[in-house]
């Protein structure tokens, strides 16, 4: 390839061909259309056992979360609430996202230790604990696209260009812009700032 830059041409040929084994080693990501999903399968019961062993310490036996570690289940119907509970069941639009993330990033501190069957099983259990499948469900590459995610239609592309930019691109008011101003909240009252030894 030829790279052109101001005044000078540099012949390319930098880098070396990526080998198929190398691509295979790193190309682990999964897409919503199933691209990347390996062969394999796992059922809820197997998943429950695995989850209990390797995930529950942080995420709770049913994915309900422990302390500040993330909740993975529940929260159905809370998205319009004041404190929405966003979980795989209540929020995630694609099942592929969960398979991908669990397989590449979890368990936290020992990432990339789950094989494909284990990942299918754990995810089957998480679907079960989110009330999305029955206890005899088996997740596999084939059953993958049959799972309906409740919030699949809950996302829309960034619309700021039409909903906000016109509104926020008006000539700004410079003088006498409002009548009166009252303070309705003080951060000091909350006192959550780590500003002394006790915090």
């Amino acid at each position: 390839a030829l790279i052109l830059c101001a005044g000078t041409a540099t012949a390319g040929d930098l880098g070396r061909p990526a080998l198929p084994q190398e691509i295979a080693a790193w190309d682990l990501d999964i897409r919503p259309d199933g691209m990347g999903l390996p062969e394999g399968a796992g059922d809820v019961a197997t998943g429950e056992e695995l989850f209990s062993e390797t995930c529950a310490a942080c995420h709770g036996e049913f994915g309900e979360g422990v302390d500040r570690w993330p909740k993975l289940a529940g929260g159905d119907g809370t998205l319009a609430d004041d404190d929405p509970q966003k979980t795989i069941g209540s929020y995630w639009p694609y099942l592929s996202t969960a398979w991908d993330y669990i397989h590449r990033a979890m368990p936290f501190g020992n990432a990339r230790s789950l094989d494909a069957d284990q990942t299918y099983a754990i995810l089957a259990y998480l679907l079960y604990s989110n009330d999305l499948v029955d206890e005899d469900f088996v997740l596999s590459r084939d059953s993958f696209l049959t799972v309906a995610m409740p919030n699949a239609d809950g996302f829309f592309p960034d619309d700021r260009a039409t909903t906000e930019l016109p509104l926020f691109s008006q000539p700004p008011c410079m003088a006498d812009c409002k009548q009166e101003v009252t303070i309705r909240m003080h951060a000091t009252v909350l006192d959550v700032t780590p500003d002394d030894a006790a915090d």
């Binding site: 061909p17 084994q21 190398e22 501190g109 990432a111 990339r112």
Partner: peptide, 25 residues
């Protein structure tokens, strides 16, 4: 020829082997 050469080279262990930093904190 280039493709052949590429296939002949041994895969790079820094890629094919999982590294500590891919796993742990």
């Amino acid at each position: 020829l280039a493709a052949t050469a590429a296939r002949a080279a041994p895969p790079d262990p820094r890629i094919t082997e999982v590294q500590d930093w891919n796993v742990s904190w």
